[in-house]
Amino acid sequence: MRLVSVATLMATVRLLTAGALIIGACAAVARASDLDVSVVDRDGKPVPNVAVYAVPLGEASGGSAATATATMNQIDVQFHPHILIVQQGTAVSFPNTDTIAHHVYSFSDPQQFDLAIYKGDLHPPVTFDRPGLVTLGCNIHDNMLGYILVVETDMFGKTNNVGQATLPLNRSGEFKVRIWSPRIRDRSDSLSRTVTLSGGRDQVLRFSLESKLRPPRDSDSGALAWSDY
């Protein structure tokens, strides 16, 4: 029964992906505009995996309400993705793909919750209603760490390997564009810009960080075993 539903789910995902690609292609033809944000460190090198989001101010508000669902997986005793960005109101599922059980929790202000010891899809999705940063942990595996950034907008993304994020610009107006990553040490007021965006015209925004970045979160190299504490 479960196998069937997983297969159906996979098929649906594939269909949706294909659909999204087609729509994306059409959109490209229709020449919808984008907001391209790049993030570079103090040496001018691109910084990947930085959350980027544009919060509409005043008249620009509106946009679509959150209908999407999102997934924070657990693979090889780590959260995947390490950083998940969702619109306020999104339901996030926490499937445990490992063969060992996890106990996912958060004590963060926007959403305190815990999903008692489980494997697979035992728990229903958690809806994130309040904006802010939710830090995730596992009560069994102390080294697991993940983030869900809940934002008040449907315009968000994450920088890719060349430090760029492309947010589809679906309306005009004034926006506060913010970036966030656990690696960034810069003062928070330098991590947001207020910009006026108008549809039909691509816009480019560049954040140059001043402070040295923290090293990326280490993946376990396997050279040593690390006990829990």
């Binding site: 830090t135 102390d142 760490l145 656990p182 979160r217 280490d218 504490y229």
Partner: peptide, 17 residues
């Protein structure tokens, strides 16, 4: 009794126990 803390101010990489 064991107490551990992973300060966010250090980017979540450091843990003190």
């Amino acid at each position: 009794l064991s107490v551990s803390r992973r300060p966010q101010s250090l980017g979540g990489r450091h843990t003190f126990v």
